[in-house]
Computed example of a mutant assay.
Amino acid sequence: MFKFILRRILTMIPQLFILSILIFIMAKAMPGDALTGQLVSNPKMDAKTILELKQKLGMFDPPYVQYVRWIKGLVHGDLGLSMIHQTKVTHLLAGRMWNTVLLSGAILILSYLISIPLGIVGGRWTDSWADKMIVGYNYLTFATPLFILALIVLFIFGFILGWFPTSGSVDIRVENGTFAYYMSKLDHLILPAFSGAIVSTTVTIQYLRNEIIDTKIKDFVKTARAKGVNESKVYTNHILRNSFLPIAAFLGYEIVYLIGGSVFLETIYGYPGIGQLFVSSILQRDFSVVTALVMIFGLATLIGTLLSDIILSAVDPRIRIE
């Protein structure tokens, strides 16, 4: 196991290197920049001042010089300076990263709380009325884009019923660290977490339902029943134990999906996380923030796939990845 993890980590190094080159090339290919945009938004700025700032920041240096400087900064934990916010990108991300982690964690927990019971019911009582309702629910959530569902949930529960706040991550009127503060955080978290969880249940329900259906007709299950093993124990000790293997392996990819989904959810709900920051930075041509976030997303994707392989090899002794 250790050799496998070490080999995968070493493989990630050239992957990150190639990713960094692609990100840098795409950032340079995009038109405009944050400084040029300030000519319109800031009347105190003029073309001469912008030109001097660009020269000072090395924006006219050869591309390979800029790339090497950027990579050196990444290695030392320096993600650059945000031209729009006039602060270091690391400081900018620090205030938003935990909001995204909190939202992603809530979506993951809610998703499994919904999908695992539904998958078990659908797989155990196949073709029953409950299974048909679950399959119908699955088709509906699969066919509904995340941003459409999020807008519907926001409109109904936020604007029409007024049960939950429609933007932000906490009420600015409550004091940090108090019980009211954490309750406000929870109140602002419910709608985006619920929207993301509903859509992300589709794959887990389908995988678990299909695995239970396939596993319950296998020979070792028939043998257990022939020996007189109680039906509940057959499902608990034989069918479910084997059916959960793909779900465990899919956990890493689920994390990757949550990162991508946070961009839509945080933008729609005005939730101040790195997804919302990513969209606003693209619109404002704040490329130092964009490149840093894409690198973070890429690293999270690689870690997610690695985590999936580790979990699968740990829970299934028949697999020998090493």
Rank of each mutant, 00 (worst) to 15 (best):
M12I: 03
Q15H: 09
I25L: 11
A29L: 13
M30Q: 10
G32L: 08
A34I: 00
L35N: 04
T36D: 15
G37Q: 00
L39M: 09
L39H: 08
L39Y: 12
P43Y: 13
K44I: 02
K54V: 12
Q55C: 03
L57K: 08
Y67M: 07
R69H: 06
V75M: 03
G77T: 13
G80N: 12
Q86Y: 06
T87Q: 08
T90L: 12
A94K: 02
W98R: 07
L103N: 00
G105W: 05
I107S: 03
I107Y: 00
I109A: 12
L110P: 01
L118R: 06
G123F: 15
G123P: 09
R124W: 06
W125Y: 07
T126Y: 15
I134K: 10
Y139W: 13
Y139P: 02
L140Q: 05
F155L: 10
F157T: 00
G158V: 01
F159I: 05
G162T: 02
G162K: 07
S169K: 01
N176Q: 12
S184R: 10
S184Q: 01
K185R: 14
D187L: 14
H188G: 07
A193L: 02
A193R: 01
V203A: 13
I212Y: 12
T215Q: 04
K216D: 10
F220Q: 05
F220A: 02
R225C: 02
S232G: 09
K233L: 11
N237T: 12
I239A: 14
I239M: 15
S243P: 05
P246E: 15
L251T: 10
G252H: 10
E254M: 14
V256Y: 03
Y257K: 07
G260S: 03
F264Q: 13
L265N: 02
E266A: 06
Y269D: 03
Y271G: 00
P272C: 09
V279Y: 02
S280W: 03
S281R: 05
Q284V: 04
F287C: 02
V289Q: 03
V289E: 02
L293P: 00
L293E: 04
L293R: 01
M295N: 09
G298Y: 12
L299I: 11
S308E: 08
D309V: 06
I311F: 10
R318G: 08
I321L: 15
E322Y: 11
